[in-house]
Nucleic acid binder design. Structure first.
Lengths: 235, 235
DNA sequence: CCAAAAGTGTTTGGTTTACACCCATGG
DNA sequence: CCATGGGTGTAAACCAAACACTTTTGG
């Protein structure tokens, strides 16, 4: 049995993939190999196939491009303007992903001509993809101000100065390091390691790992991770 | 030109419509007039038509059911499990709406057999609609803890005790009235009126109206409208 | 030995909470 | 005149922000 006299529409999933290389927040884009808009940059996406739920479609896309599974992936928004795709009407469900850039497997994505772009150097993208990226940035800022989400971008072991530089990049601000480390440590989510990262200073900075049990239990609690969030531009 | 060899899917919009009658938060549901699931309760929804964007579809659905335009309407989530509709695969984009229940025009919705349900008396709904309602409740709690969104549910003129009872209903808690009114008034969003509502007490409670200019300007700022939000259950 | 980054403590001001009494009035 | 709900103030605890010096070590 089917619903008759109803119009069926193409449904796509597009992924906004954020990565952090220890210095800067970046976005993974692909260069389209096919017409229309051949050679233009775009988000990685694909049509939803029969038998594939939306979240499965998003995970599949992410895996095809990066080789990664079990990544942080969250539904952002459905985009459904009638003419957003000039070829044929397509509703796109967007997901944003946070990945540790070092786990990204380059060879997989060469077939898609993928490249990481710094957030302030994002090229013109096809369709409404720039708008999607803007919305994802806002959502990330909003969410990271309240929840310890940015740990998803970091490697297993990381230092507090690295974490601070990630926050500073995302909010385009500079935070006081004494207040920052106090605030982060007071969440109780970090476990100090015995060894240090000596790459970026002579003294070296202690590594920390995330306490996964507490992280999962406390993820939805409101934290106050950003000073004066009121004046920042959110969703 | 079209994308060939791709499967097109039914796309629906379903609306989770919240209303407040001065006492309790309620949800507007309709009783299906047609098979399948005839006579079962469901959210108001409809298929997205050609030439209709998602947000327009949501507004149209709301207008057909309630007669209202310009209502607060926000996209919630896309639901896309493969078998969520047993008749035929349908991706549903959900929107939640906040309306002043007194503006709702009953005669319009009689053709849909619509009824308001108290939040703790929601019947079993078709498909995954109960899940959609749960998500909308969580989103409302989450959002109302940070943004002055609940004014959308109130009539033009309202009293602080009314507002407090709305918050208390949503969070299933009791708040200290001194702290509550101080907090709300300190947002600067309320303008005190000269007249009083004398329906619910002998002394009467002063009416307030929303300062729309400040409301629109400050909507995205983080407020701290709920005491101890940490222990409440959110998204 | 010194430049460069890591690490840490205190004071101050503001915000949040807990808490109790008086006010106005319709019946 | 009294029961009912409306309205308000204060003190204590807590939290956030501003701020500067010491430590470590590779070169």
């Amino acid at each position: 049995m089917k619903y008759s006299h109803q119009t069926r529409i193409l449904v796509a999933v597009d992924c906004i993939i954020f990565g952090f290389d220890g210095e800067k927040l970046k976005l993974l884009l692909i260069q389209r190999g096919i017409e229309p808009e051949k050679n233009k940059w775009s988000l990685m996406g694909g049509f939803v196939e029969p038998g594939e739920s939306l979240s499965l479609a998003a995970n599949n896309i992410l895996k095809k491009l990066t080789g990664l599974e079990g990544v942080y992936l969250e539904q952002l928004q459905a985009f459904g303007e009638v003419n957003r795709d000039p070829i044929e009407r397509t509703v796109s469900i967007t997901y944003f992903a946070l990945i540790d850039i070092h786990k990204y497997e380059k060879q997989l994505s060469q077939e898609y001509h993928a490249e990481w772009f710094e957030m302030n150097k994002i090229p013109e993208l096809i369709f409404d993809h720039n708008e999607m990226v803007e919305m994802a940035k806002k959502r990330l800022r909003y969410k990271a101000a309240l929840h310890p989400i940015l740990f998803e971008l970091l490697p297993e072991k990381f230092t507090i100065p690295q974490l601070q530089s990630l926050y500073e990049g995302i909010y385009d601000s500079v935070f006081d390091k004494r207040n920052f480390s106090r605030k982060i440590l007071s969440t109780g989510l970090l476990i100090k390691q015995a060894d240090k990262d000596k790459l970026s200073s002579k003294k070296g900075a202690f590594y920390y790992v995330l306490d996964k049990r507490k992280y999962n239990a406390n993820f939805h609690a409101f934290l106050n991770l950003i000073p004066n969030p009121d004046h920042l531009q959110f969703v």
